[in-house]
Amino acid sequence: RFQALLGEPAAAQGLRAALRERYLRGLGAARGRPARFCLRAGVCVEAVFGAADVGAVAFQVDALRTPLGVQAAALLRCTDVLAYSFLLD
């Protein structure tokens, strides 16, 4: 995770920064948008994307629709999520 601190070549560090910046801008674009999360065992849930933590441990979502009702706010563990998608206008 912290490869950049382990004496990585400068070229690789530059690429790492560029890739990460685009990813973070993507997280910014996802904020507040309805998203569909595919979890393990074929389970899919819908929620409003909130935020992700720095180490890719969990996603914070709002209005998570579950079979038991709508959770106003929730954390989804990244290890349980296979993929998520959202629409941009």
Partner: peptide, 29 residues
């Protein structure tokens, strides 16, 4: 992009109505 922290792949697909669908496949998957 590919997030260098989680190795998640960010994919874009262009839809007919000029919208863009973004899918993020988590690195562990």
């Amino acid at each position: 992009t590919v997030d260098p922290v989680s190795a998640s792949v960010v994919l874009a697909t262009f839809l007919e109505n000029e919208k863009v669908s973004i899918s993020v496949v988590l690195g562990h998957a």
